[in-house]
């Protein structure tokens, strides 16, 4: 599948694409082909990055610290978890000097603290380094807390969506808790404003009840 990512780059804000198929190998960001081949080789993270990116030990250690993976420098590539592999791919792309990244399900399996940390880190990349980021994400709880609009990938096309209450979306991805809760309250006959994020929904419920 050929995709022209240039259509989606946006300055100073994330572009999110939901329901995009996983494990494509031709992303500008992931360079998964490089790491997947290297998986066959019993090599440490530090040695791999040193060879591929031609960087000093200090730079690699600092980059690993930035993605909260300092403990991983001496781990072998073939024992990394999926989250750790994504972190190594990210460092790989950053050390290679890539400016535009497509992050494939990067936030999946991260705990709350790490999700918030990486959102802040990526926003810094955008605002301070002029980088542009596309997030491929299926977790709509994350999406609705992060952006106001997104693209839904369906039937080989990208459909722009800015209404999280649009039923069509949930034929393809799971409904976020906030939307599900408001819809449930409505089905019980209560009127609640159609808000999207957790804090907005909390206030909407407060208004609806009182």
């Amino acid at each position: 599948m050929e995709i022209d990512w240039n259509l989606f780059w946006q300055k100073d804000r994330f572009t999110v694409i939901a329901n995009f198929p996983k494990a494509l190998k031709d992303f500008p960001f992931s360079h998964s082909y490089v790491i997947d081949e290297k998986y066959q080789i019993h090599e440490t993270v530090k040695d791999f990055l040193k060879q591929e990116c031609h960087c000093s030990d200090e730079k690699i250690i600092s980059a690993l610290g930035m993605v909260h993976f300092s403990y991983g420098k001496d781990l072998f590539l073939d024992v990394l978890t999926s989250v750790e592999t994504r972190k190594v791919r990210l460092i790989f792309s950053l050390l290679k000097g890539e400016k535009n990244l497509v992050l494939e399900h990067f936030f999946e399996e991260l705990i709350f603290e790490e999700r918030e940390y990486f959102k802040r880190l990526f926003r810094n990349f955008m605002y301070k380094k002029g980088m542009q980021l596309i997030l491929l994400e299926n977790n709509m709880n994350f999406v609705c807390e992060t952006v106001k609009d997104f693209f839904l990938y369906t039937k080989n096309r990208f459909v722009h969506k800015d209404d999280f209450y649009d039923e069509e979306i949930y034929q393809y991805v799971e409904m976020p808790y906030t939307i599900s809760l408001v819809k449930y309250f409505e089905s019980c006959g209560h009127k609640i404003d159609h808000d999207v994020t957790f804090s907005e929904t909390l206030k909407a419920i407060y208004r609806g009840v009182s």
Partner: peptide, 15 residues
């Protein structure tokens, strides 16, 4: 510890 409460316990705690 870096975790948040699950959605419904969190919503009910805030409420």
């Amino acid at each position: 510890l870096g975790y948040h409460l699950p959605f419904y316990p969190n919503m009910s705690t805030q409420l």
